[in-house]
Design a protein around this nucleic acid. Sequence first.
DNA 1: TTGGGACTCTAGCAGCGCTAGCGTTTATCG
DNA 2: CGATAAACGCTAGCGCTGCTAGAGTCCCAA
Lengths: 190, 190
Amino acid sequence: MSIQSRRERERAEREKLIITAARELAEAEGWEAVTTRRLAERVEYSQPVLYSHFKGKDAIMAAVAVEGCADLAVELRAARTAAPDARLAIAGVSAAYVAFADRHPALYDVMFSQAVPLPFATPEAPPALQAAFGELAETVRPHAGGDNLGALTETFWAALHGLVTLMRGGRLPREHHELRLGLLLARFTG
Amino acid sequence: MSIQSRRERERAEREKLIITAARELAEAEGWEAVTTRRLAERVEYSQPVLYSHFKGKDAIMAAVAVEGCADLAVELRAARTAAPDARLAIAGVSAAYVAFADRHPALYDVMFSQAVPLPFATPEAPPALQAAFGELAETVRPHAGGDNLGALTETFWAALHGLVTLMRGGRLPREHHELRLGLLLARFTG
DNA sequence: TTGGGACTCTAGCAGCGCTAGCGTTTATCG
DNA sequence: CGATAAACGCTAGCGCTGCTAGAGTCCCAA
């Protein structure tokens, strides 16, 4: 029994190693630089080993995305609980969200922009993902009034996401970012 | 003189043919199906001909994106001018925007999501792109109050873009779409 | 008619995601 | 302890990608 469990543990460690290596490579050089060959070389195994852990490159990206969601949830929670009132909370959480996307562009992309094989808007979505959304919802709640909290949170999230992605794609000028964020907050804290 | 101009005209026609073929292929099967080989076969020329017109696949995508912007501008203008008042105008334009993204997902992606070699948020941006943004700005203007029109338009656009992309990426449930759009409009038409 | 230049083609490079099948290493059982 | 079988990771290779060098053809001007 102990031998088998040791092998399972080693397998799990290697899987974690693959995910971490993929994330580091992506964050350092972007996802286009994450090839199965480079990834295999980095974890010091041959290419086919990757496929004994994951169905394909997409699945590796999905695993990285889940990790990213957990990290984001932690940061959003910290920003929310550190704020003295609801108004500063939504401002702080928004700033934290944008800062996360800015600090981890490749991670953010795989979480929310790229197509990855993950269930998102369903009860089967990864808990880390639901946790991140939950933090946003708790932040929005005091400003919801009579509106549907879930839908309002989704709308606010979408606005943040749009600001982040359009700016990073060069579609919006960086210089007015703070102004835009302020306008958005004004419209959602009315 | 006439011979040279004929050749230039034929060259321009072929370039247009390439762009149209790329767009049709992308709209029918997505950008991952648009390979230089398939595209060359479709226009009945060899691969290298593509590179005598465009620097690379990215440049072809950029040309398609510009075409898409022109189309979008036309549709937004139609929706805006058909509305009887400012409130219905912003609702109609928003609906037209979302409908455009829904009908032309590949086109929308290359315009606003994918990385393409185009100047966006600068005076050198393609006129078609500025026209599309201008339509949005004219729609937002009556609701701007004392706020900076450009920044407010950018913010509203970002919100629409976020709703569209998160929904199409499976991050937002489709069923609450109308509700979310309504909440957004309520917040921006105060 | 002929020389020269513009133009398009064939063929190929390096790299991609992914996998079949071989060889070694490892655990189990007589 | 020694033989057997299975688990495992490797090498090698497939079909594809974007892109390009260089050969060959065609057309226009003198």
